[in-house]
Simulated assay, not measured.
Amino acid sequence: MILVFGKTGQVARELAPLLPDAHFAARSEADLSRPDECAALIRTLKPVGVIIAAAYTAVDKAEDEEELASHVNGEAPGAIAAACAEAGIPLVHISTDYVFAGEGEYAHQPGDEIAPPNAYGRTKAAGEAAVRASGADHAIIRTSWVFSPHGNNFVKTMLRLGSERDSLRIVADQIGGPTPAAAIAEACVRSLAAIAEDKALSGTYHLSGAPDVSWADFAREIFSQAGRDVEVADIPSAEFPTPAKRPLNSRLDCSSLERLGLERPDWRLYLKPIIEDFAAS
């Protein structure tokens, strides 16, 4: 049995049909703000592998709640990883492009120096470090701009706003790869099996959708596929200030995925079901 921390998040919900026999631990059973509780669950259930598909993801709120975010994103993955190392089982942990400063126009490679620009990024970087230090066989999967038919995300926000307005001003100087949660879920399953088979595959991987675009161009594609006549005006990040600084460059070099038999997904192919679901709601 595989243990998944998380039950209602975007990736966890995409994992459910892929892992019908897995145990999905909701917050009521294993609260990541109480790391020891999470480690204890591993010792109780004795799974053959673990996937951490839950996190503190409120990027702006983390600026005021960094201590809580640190428990969830930093200490909990470390405790879970230590329990996995103790049990001799593999672990998959999802991280973020926000561990990088986000400068330049190059695609960040897994081994590049990190410099988180905000509290959320700092807490996720701490989680990565704790997983690596634990000695557990692991795959850390950094991803970006996650979307799915579930929960709150950019695609659903654009569809909602596009039904209310005929023009929108969208940030155009932040560039990255929108990533379907379904592709992340597939990568989690594939990497867990891969490192269980070959410990040499332990390490850090990048997974983001292709092609890289700005938020504004992402929005244009959403409206195009949805058949919405919404004018998108490009604006700089400076005109849309947020409590947490966002990286301008979220490009990720995903060539390491080849070691797992995976490739970058074309995010444009994943929009249709979300659009259809929104139209039916």
Rank of each mutant, 00 (worst) to 15 (best):
G6D: 06
Q10W: 06
V11W: 09
A12I: 08
E14N: 08
E14W: 07
P17C: 10
P17I: 08
P17R: 11
L18W: 12
L18I: 04
L19Q: 04
L19C: 09
H23A: 14
F24Q: 03
S28P: 11
L32F: 06
S33D: 08
D36K: 14
E37K: 13
C38M: 10
L41N: 01
R43F: 05
T44W: 14
K46L: 10
V50T: 06
I52R: 09
T57N: 14
T57L: 07
V59A: 01
D64V: 13
L68G: 12
A69C: 09
A69F: 04
N73Q: 09
G74V: 09
E75C: 05
E75H: 12
E75M: 10
G78H: 03
A81H: 02
A82V: 07
A83Q: 02
I89H: 04
I89G: 03
L91Y: 02
I94F: 05
V99I: 10
F100D: 01
A101I: 08
G102A: 03
G102I: 01
G104Y: 07
A107Y: 00
H108A: 01
P110L: 09
G111F: 00
D112M: 08
E113S: 13
I114K: 13
N118R: 08
A119Y: 01
Y120K: 07
G121Q: 06
G121N: 00
T123K: 06
A125C: 13
A126M: 14
G127D: 04
A129G: 10
G135N: 05
D137F: 12
A139M: 10
A139P: 06
A139N: 07
I140H: 03
T143S: 08
T143I: 00
W145N: 00
S148P: 00
N152W: 12
F154K: 10
F154A: 09
F154M: 12
E164L: 15
E164F: 11
S167R: 15
S167D: 14
R169L: 11
I170E: 00
V171G: 00
D173Y: 08
G176W: 00
P178F: 01
A182Q: 04
A183W: 03
A187V: 01
C188Q: 08
V189F: 07
V189Y: 02
I195W: 02
A196T: 09
D198C: 11
D198G: 07
D198P: 11
A200K: 12
L201A: 05
T204P: 07
Y205V: 01
A210W: 14
D212H: 10
S214P: 04
W215G: 03
A216G: 03
D217I: 04
F218M: 05
R220E: 05
E221F: 09
I222H: 03
S224I: 13
R228G: 10
V230N: 02
A233W: 14
A233I: 15
A233C: 15
A233F: 15
D234W: 06
I235G: 01
S237F: 15
A238I: 11
F240C: 13
F240Q: 14
F240R: 15
P241V: 04
P241H: 09
T242D: 06
T242C: 08
K245R: 15
R246A: 02
S250C: 15
R251Q: 00
S256E: 14
S256R: 12
S256M: 13
E258G: 12
R259K: 13
E263H: 15
E263R: 15
D266C: 02
W267H: 01
L269D: 11
L269S: 13
D277E: 14
